[in-house]
């Protein structure tokens, strides 16, 4: 695992350092302009998730995977390193971005809200969901997987709008609030700690599912 991290660091160090300095500034400023607690995690999580895929896209561009996979490394180990590296990068971006959001003068949300458990948990949830959906698509389609993801989002949006006009907004809201409501009920019944544990467990399960699917696709990939 360490050797794969080391390879990625040598391969991307200038890019990572450049992005690591500039990108959180951008997210921090943009996030500070958002005043809605529901919108902030949805938008920012996507910006955090993009970072590892830009990195992996560079390796795709150099066609260097053929070379890497000829080295003594299994596909499982290679993919596990990618998942871990992605999470490290996304969490670092999340931490830096949130910190900047809170300290930018005139920020629309107070630091207590930005770092509140609800915001942190929902940001983590969106990061996990976006990443968990994107990774199998990236493994299967390479950089075009990002486009597939965006197209799927657009189509889903259109379908929801159609659905909304035919069955009303109530059902869609119910569907969207299914998980938050379940978490709220757990919190009401057992307290905040079990609720947080339930959310994190759900995210871990989802990520594991994404890893398993990605690995199955990766094992089928030919070079």
């Amino acid at each position: 695992m360490i050797k794969l991290f080391r390879k990625d660091f040598i391969l991307h160090k200038k890019f990572v350092l450049g992005v690591g300095l500039v990108y959180p500034l951008y997210i921090g400023y943009m996030g500070s302009r958002i005043g809605r607690t529901t919108l902030l995690p949805v938008l920012c999580a996507f910006l955090y998730v993009i970072v590892p895929f830009v990195l992996f896209g560079r390796e795709d561009k150099f066609k260097a995977e053929t070379f890497t996979l000829s080295l003594p490394v299994t596909r499982r180990e290679y993919l596990r390193a990618r998942f871990l590296l992605s999470w490290i990068l996304m969490l670092l971006m999340f931490a830096a971005g949130s910190l900047l959001m809170a300290v930018v003068p005139g920020a629309k949300l107070p630091a207590a809200t930005v770092f509140g458990p609800r915001m942190v948990l929902s940001s983590l949830a969106f990061i996990a969901v976006y990443f968990g959906l994107l990774m199998p698509l990236f493994v299967r389609f390479g950089q075009a997987g990002l486009l597939v993801f965006l197209v799927v989002l657009q189509v889903t949006g259109v379908l929801l709008m159609v659905f909304r006009s035919s069955v009303g907004i109530g059902l869609i809201k119910t569907l969207f609030r299914l998980v938050p409501n379940a978490v709220a009920e757990i919190q009401a019944a057992f307290g905040p700690a079990p609720a947080v544990f339930a959310v994190l467990s759900l995210l871990a399960l989802f990520s594991y599912g994404s890893f398993s699917l990605s690995l199955a696709l990766f094992r089928r990939k030919e070079y």
Partner: peptide, 20 residues
């Protein structure tokens, strides 16, 4: 021979060597 094109040979060696 696909390697990491933008790296120097010394850097490529640094990425390869730890695998063996």
């Amino acid at each position: 021979p696909f390697f990491y094109e933008h790296l120097t040979l010394a850097d490529v060696r640094k990425t390869v060597a730890p695998f063996y």
